[in-house]
Amino acid sequence: MLTKKGGSMKNPLTGFISPLIFGTFLLFSPFPRYQEASQAKDIVAKVDELYRADTSSALVEMDIITPHWQRTLKMNVWSEGKDNTFIRILEPKKEQGIATLRIKNEMWNYLPKTNKVMKIPPSMMMSSWMGSDFTNDDLVKEFTFLESYHFEMITIDNPEKGVLYIKCTPKEGLPIVWGYITVAVQEKDYMPLWQKYYDEKGNLIREMIFKEIKTFGKRDIPTVLELIPKNKEGNKTVLRYLEAQFDLQLERGIFTLRNLRKRL
Protein backbone atom coordinates (compact mmCIF):
# COMPACT_ATOMS: atom_id res chain seq x y z
CA MET A 1 0.00 0.00 0.00
CA LEU A 2 2.77 2.48 0.53
CA THR A 3 5.51 3.49 -1.75
CA LYS A 4 9.01 3.19 -0.49
CA LYS A 5 10.95 6.39 -0.61
CA GLY A 6 14.63 7.06 -0.60
CA GLY A 7 15.62 5.02 -3.61
CA SER A 8 16.75 1.44 -3.68
CA MET A 9 18.56 -0.12 -0.82
CA LYS A 10 22.15 0.41 -1.72
CA ASN A 11 25.10 -0.06 0.51
CA PRO A 12 26.20 3.51 1.11
CA LEU A 13 29.78 2.67 0.46
CA THR A 14 28.69 2.20 -3.09
CA GLY A 15 30.04 5.47 -4.20
CA PHE A 16 33.62 4.61 -3.64
CA ILE A 17 34.08 1.05 -2.52
CA SER A 18 32.71 -0.66 -5.53
CA PRO A 19 34.74 1.11 -8.20
CA LEU A 20 37.67 0.66 -5.93
CA ILE A 21 37.16 -3.02 -5.41
CA PHE A 22 36.48 -3.51 -9.03
CA GLY A 23 39.59 -1.69 -9.96
CA THR A 24 41.59 -3.67 -7.45
CA PHE A 25 40.13 -6.85 -8.66
CA LEU A 26 40.87 -5.89 -12.17
CA LEU A 27 44.44 -5.11 -11.36
CA PHE A 28 45.31 -7.72 -8.86
CA SER A 29 43.04 -10.70 -9.12
CA PRO A 30 44.56 -13.95 -10.15
CA PHE A 31 43.39 -15.31 -13.47
CA PRO A 32 44.43 -18.79 -14.51
CA ARG A 33 47.04 -19.03 -17.20
CA TYR A 34 45.86 -20.23 -20.53
CA GLN A 35 47.59 -21.80 -23.50
CA GLU A 36 45.63 -20.81 -26.59
CA ALA A 37 46.30 -20.73 -30.26
CA SER A 38 44.35 -17.70 -31.36
CA GLN A 39 46.11 -14.41 -31.31
CA ALA A 40 43.10 -12.64 -29.85
CA LYS A 41 43.05 -14.82 -26.84
CA ASP A 42 46.79 -14.43 -26.48
CA ILE A 43 46.49 -10.72 -26.33
CA VAL A 44 43.73 -10.79 -23.80
CA ALA A 45 45.67 -13.28 -21.76
CA LYS A 46 48.60 -10.89 -21.74
CA VAL A 47 46.38 -8.09 -20.55
CA ASP A 48 45.08 -10.42 -17.93
CA GLU A 49 48.55 -11.29 -16.81
CA LEU A 50 49.29 -7.63 -16.32
CA TYR A 51 46.99 -7.69 -13.40
CA ARG A 52 47.83 -11.00 -11.82
CA ALA A 53 49.40 -11.12 -8.42
CA ASP A 54 49.28 -13.31 -5.34
CA THR A 55 49.59 -10.34 -3.03
CA SER A 56 49.54 -6.63 -3.60
CA SER A 57 49.71 -3.33 -1.82
CA ALA A 58 48.85 0.01 -3.37
CA LEU A 59 48.19 3.66 -2.76
CA VAL A 60 45.21 4.68 -4.82
CA GLU A 61 43.29 7.83 -5.62
CA MET A 62 39.77 7.85 -6.94
CA ASP A 63 37.81 10.70 -8.47
CA ILE A 64 34.08 10.21 -8.47
CA ILE A 65 32.11 12.62 -10.54
CA THR A 66 28.33 12.71 -10.47
CA PRO A 67 25.85 15.37 -11.56
CA HIS A 68 25.37 16.26 -7.90
CA TRP A 69 28.87 16.19 -6.48
CA GLN A 70 32.52 15.46 -7.09
CA ARG A 71 34.97 13.91 -4.67
CA THR A 72 38.42 12.53 -4.59
CA LEU A 73 39.31 9.72 -2.21
CA LYS A 74 42.76 8.53 -1.36
CA MET A 75 43.27 5.06 0.12
CA ASN A 76 45.55 2.18 0.84
CA VAL A 77 44.59 -1.15 -0.62
CA TRP A 78 46.00 -4.58 0.22
CA SER A 79 44.96 -7.86 -1.35
CA GLU A 80 45.81 -11.53 -0.97
CA GLY A 81 44.62 -14.07 -3.49
CA LYS A 82 41.09 -13.36 -4.54
CA ASP A 83 39.55 -13.79 -1.13
CA ASN A 84 41.14 -11.18 1.05
CA THR A 85 41.02 -7.45 0.63
CA PHE A 86 41.69 -4.60 3.01
CA ILE A 87 41.08 -0.93 2.28
CA ARG A 88 41.73 2.08 4.45
CA ILE A 89 40.71 5.60 3.47
CA LEU A 90 43.30 8.32 4.00
CA GLU A 91 41.57 11.32 2.50
CA PRO A 92 39.33 13.36 2.67
CA LYS A 93 39.45 14.14 6.33
CA LYS A 94 35.79 13.38 6.94
CA GLU A 95 36.27 9.77 5.91
CA GLN A 96 39.80 9.34 7.18
CA GLY A 97 40.23 6.05 8.97
CA ILE A 98 37.20 4.31 7.49
CA ALA A 99 38.28 0.79 6.66
CA THR A 100 36.78 -2.21 4.92
CA LEU A 101 37.79 -5.82 5.29
CA ARG A 102 36.64 -8.62 3.03
CA ILE A 103 37.41 -12.25 3.70
CA LYS A 104 35.81 -14.61 1.21
CA ASN A 105 32.08 -13.94 1.55
CA GLU A 106 32.13 -11.80 4.62
CA MET A 107 32.62 -8.08 4.79
CA TRP A 108 33.04 -5.55 7.59
CA ASN A 109 33.25 -1.79 7.76
CA TYR A 110 34.97 0.21 10.46
CA LEU A 111 33.81 3.77 11.13
CA PRO A 112 36.18 5.78 13.31
CA LYS A 113 33.66 8.51 13.95
CA THR A 114 31.48 6.11 15.89
CA ASN A 115 34.25 3.64 16.64
CA LYS A 116 32.05 0.80 15.47
CA VAL A 117 32.60 -2.22 13.30
CA MET A 118 29.59 -3.04 11.16
CA LYS A 119 29.14 -6.41 9.54
CA ILE A 120 27.64 -6.12 6.12
CA PRO A 121 24.86 -8.68 5.71
CA PRO A 122 25.20 -10.92 2.65
CA SER A 123 22.24 -9.22 0.96
CA MET A 124 23.84 -5.82 1.32
CA MET A 125 27.15 -7.20 0.25
CA MET A 126 25.74 -7.91 -3.13
CA SER A 127 24.38 -4.42 -3.25
CA SER A 128 27.67 -2.96 -2.23
CA TRP A 129 28.92 -3.47 -5.69
CA MET A 130 25.85 -1.85 -7.13
CA GLY A 131 24.79 1.61 -7.95
CA SER A 132 28.17 2.97 -8.89
CA ASP A 133 29.53 3.11 -12.38
CA PHE A 134 30.63 -0.49 -12.08
CA THR A 135 28.60 -3.67 -12.17
CA ASN A 136 28.48 -6.43 -9.61
CA ASP A 137 30.51 -8.92 -11.55
CA ASP A 138 33.44 -8.36 -9.27
CA LEU A 139 32.70 -10.32 -6.23
CA VAL A 140 31.47 -13.64 -7.54
CA LYS A 141 33.57 -16.69 -7.06
CA GLU A 142 34.31 -18.42 -10.33
CA PHE A 143 34.68 -15.26 -12.43
CA THR A 144 37.25 -15.63 -15.13
CA PHE A 145 37.39 -13.37 -18.09
CA LEU A 146 39.33 -15.70 -20.33
CA GLU A 147 37.00 -18.64 -19.86
CA SER A 148 33.81 -16.67 -20.26
CA TYR A 149 34.25 -15.14 -23.68
CA HIS A 150 35.04 -15.96 -27.26
CA PHE A 151 37.73 -13.76 -28.71
CA GLU A 152 38.38 -12.59 -32.25
CA MET A 153 40.50 -9.93 -33.90
CA ILE A 154 38.44 -7.26 -35.62
CA THR A 155 38.89 -4.09 -37.56
CA ILE A 156 36.97 -0.91 -36.79
CA ASP A 157 36.16 2.23 -38.74
CA ASN A 158 38.94 4.77 -38.47
CA PRO A 159 41.44 2.53 -36.79
CA GLU A 160 44.39 4.13 -35.11
CA LYS A 161 47.87 3.33 -36.22
CA GLY A 162 49.63 0.68 -34.19
CA VAL A 163 46.51 -0.44 -32.40
CA LEU A 164 44.90 -3.88 -32.41
CA TYR A 165 41.22 -4.47 -31.78
CA ILE A 166 39.63 -7.50 -30.22
CA LYS A 167 35.96 -8.38 -29.85
CA CYS A 168 34.96 -10.42 -26.81
CA THR A 169 31.60 -12.14 -27.00
CA PRO A 170 30.26 -13.82 -23.87
CA LYS A 171 29.57 -17.52 -24.03
CA GLU A 172 25.88 -18.34 -23.87
CA GLY A 173 24.41 -19.15 -20.48
CA LEU A 174 26.99 -17.28 -18.43
CA PRO A 175 25.85 -14.56 -16.04
CA ILE A 176 27.06 -11.66 -18.11
CA VAL A 177 24.85 -8.74 -19.12
CA TRP A 178 26.99 -7.48 -21.97
CA GLY A 179 26.27 -8.20 -25.57
CA TYR A 180 29.97 -7.87 -26.37
CA ILE A 181 33.09 -5.99 -25.33
CA THR A 182 35.68 -4.50 -27.64
CA VAL A 183 39.26 -4.06 -26.44
CA ALA A 184 41.93 -1.89 -27.99
CA VAL A 185 45.60 -2.63 -27.25
CA GLN A 186 48.89 -1.23 -28.44
CA GLU A 187 50.38 -3.49 -31.06
CA LYS A 188 53.90 -3.19 -29.79
CA ASP A 189 53.47 -4.21 -26.18
CA TYR A 190 49.82 -5.25 -25.90
CA MET A 191 49.17 -2.47 -23.38
CA PRO A 192 45.38 -1.90 -23.10
CA LEU A 193 44.14 1.45 -24.38
CA TRP A 194 40.42 1.14 -23.86
CA GLN A 195 37.55 -1.26 -23.36
CA LYS A 196 34.04 -0.60 -24.64
CA TYR A 197 31.01 -2.41 -23.26
CA TYR A 198 27.99 -2.91 -25.50
CA ASP A 199 24.55 -4.35 -24.86
CA GLU A 200 23.08 -6.99 -27.15
CA LYS A 201 21.47 -4.39 -29.38
CA GLY A 202 24.84 -2.80 -30.04
CA ASN A 203 24.44 0.28 -27.85
CA LEU A 204 27.61 1.49 -26.18
CA ILE A 205 26.87 1.40 -22.48
CA ARG A 206 30.21 2.22 -20.93
CA GLU A 207 33.82 2.81 -21.72
CA MET A 208 36.97 2.21 -19.73
CA ILE A 209 40.09 4.10 -20.77
CA PHE A 210 43.61 3.11 -19.70
CA LYS A 211 46.23 5.83 -19.44
CA GLU A 212 49.65 6.74 -18.15
CA ILE A 213 51.69 3.60 -18.18
CA LYS A 214 54.21 3.51 -15.38
CA THR A 215 56.61 1.00 -13.98
CA PHE A 216 56.01 -0.43 -10.54
CA GLY A 217 58.69 -2.88 -9.55
CA LYS A 218 59.00 -5.23 -12.47
CA ARG A 219 55.74 -4.33 -14.16
CA ASP A 220 54.52 -1.74 -16.59
CA ILE A 221 50.85 -1.05 -16.11
CA PRO A 222 48.42 1.70 -17.02
CA THR A 223 48.00 3.59 -13.78
CA VAL A 224 44.95 5.62 -14.67
CA LEU A 225 41.62 3.96 -15.34
CA GLU A 226 38.71 6.09 -16.41
CA LEU A 227 35.27 4.58 -16.42
CA ILE A 228 32.63 6.52 -18.26
CA PRO A 229 29.04 5.31 -18.37
CA LYS A 230 27.43 6.30 -21.63
CA ASN A 231 23.85 6.04 -20.48
CA LYS A 232 24.13 8.32 -17.45
CA GLU A 233 24.84 11.98 -17.96
CA GLY A 234 27.63 13.55 -15.96
CA ASN A 235 29.01 10.43 -14.29
CA LYS A 236 32.62 9.39 -14.37
CA THR A 237 35.00 7.51 -12.14
CA VAL A 238 38.77 7.78 -12.37
CA LEU A 239 41.08 5.40 -10.57
CA ARG A 240 44.71 6.43 -10.15
CA TYR A 241 47.49 4.17 -8.86
CA LEU A 242 50.04 6.36 -7.16
CA GLU A 243 52.13 3.48 -5.83
CA ALA A 244 51.90 -0.27 -6.18
CA GLN A 245 53.80 -3.39 -5.19
CA PHE A 246 53.09 -6.95 -6.29
CA ASP A 247 53.89 -10.37 -4.93
CA LEU A 248 55.36 -8.83 -1.86
CA GLN A 249 55.59 -10.28 1.56
CA LEU A 250 52.63 -8.84 3.44
CA GLU A 251 52.60 -8.24 7.15
CA ARG A 252 50.72 -10.77 9.18
CA GLY A 253 47.39 -9.65 10.56
CA ILE A 254 46.36 -7.29 7.79
CA PHE A 255 43.22 -9.20 7.00
CA THR A 256 41.87 -9.25 10.53
CA LEU A 257 39.13 -7.48 12.40
CA ARG A 258 41.70 -6.12 14.78
CA ASN A 259 43.40 -4.37 11.94
CA LEU A 260 40.12 -2.68 11.09
CA ARG A 261 40.05 -0.85 14.35
CA LYS A 262 43.66 0.28 14.27
CA ARG A 263 43.88 4.00 14.35
CA LEU A 264 46.33 5.61 11.99
Binding site: L111, T114, M118
Partner: peptide
Protein backbone atom coordinates in the same frame (compact mmCIF):
# COMPACT_ATOMS: atom_id res chain seq x y z
CA UNK B 1 25.06 2.84 14.08
CA UNK B 2 24.00 3.95 10.67
CA UNK B 3 25.89 4.23 7.45
CA UNK B 4 24.55 5.85 4.33
CA UNK B 5 25.61 8.11 1.52
CA UNK B 6 25.25 11.84 2.04
CA UNK B 7 24.13 14.29 -0.57
CA UNK B 8 27.68 15.53 -1.07
CA UNK B 9 28.84 12.01 -1.85
CA UNK B 10 30.63 11.49 1.42
CA UNK B 11 29.99 8.51 3.62
CA UNK B 12 27.36 9.42 6.15
CA UNK B 13 27.72 7.60 9.41
CA UNK B 14 26.75 8.30 12.96
CA UNK B 15 25.74 6.81 16.26
Amino acid sequence: VIISQAADGSIANDL
